[in-house]
Amino acid sequence: MTAETALAPKHSPRDYKSDIKPVWCPGCGDYSVLGSITKAFSELNLDPENVAVISGIGCSSRIPAYTDCYGFHGVHGRSLPLAAGLKVARPDMTVLVASGDGDGFSIGGNHFMHACRRNVDLTYVVMDNRVYGMTKGQASPTTEPDWDNALTPGGSGISPFRPLVIALAAGANFIARGFSGDQNGTAKLLKEAIEHPGFSFVQILSPCVTFRPDQKTWKDDVHDAAVDPTDEIGRAARRLMTDDGFNTGVLYKGEREAFQPPIGEATATVADLEGKFAL
């Protein structure tokens, strides 16, 4: 018997990778996040035809091209409404949304809050590198105020957005933080996030080695959260308000019921709908 025993998952992580070669910079944390995603899918025994990966725009948002399942590389900041529409229409599918801190918290910030509030059963993965990587290094909502670079001399001076706190206040049902340098630990977090009903938000600290080489030290900064996940919102709020930004693990696991409107009979075909948009 070889290593592929009867107990092994049906599909290996590699089965979820497409043949398209990523164009990320070598060293980018997003490679490892892609590995965590495919490992989580494999351990969940998901059939690729029952999975969709949806994204907006950014280096991190390229993930749908690199996964071999359904995918949609959408418009900047608009991945969440796309994904929510898909999930309510096809609740049988596993829908994972991939984003960056620019895509998710700047242009897509409003969608983020309302997706937490709606609590559709989605997993929202934000690869946070505290910079706009794709457009060559502008400060993002999570950038430190004193990050001094050519585009923001002396730093932006603006206090950073705190996505986990916002997610909790807005109603997300699962909140976790991972680190791309811990591919296996992050795969475990993603598996839990996908299994948990409702809107699961996972921030993954994923260094941009090109525009934020200083983030290479994150491997020394991250640490396991010293406490177990809580379902008590007050305790989670205190924990997240005093968080140093480098605690990893599941930080909140709520019990809200996922939003799923009843699915009625189709009233039109896709061709009918397309007809309405024809010029």
């Binding site: 018997m1 070889t2 025993t5 107990l7 092994a8 296996n184 630990g185 795969a187």
Partner: peptide, 11 residues
């Protein structure tokens, strides 16, 4: 050979 190898999740 014939030794069964258990599946272990990556983590």
């Amino acid at each position: 050979g014939d030794t069964p190898i258990p599946h272990i999740p990556p983590w």
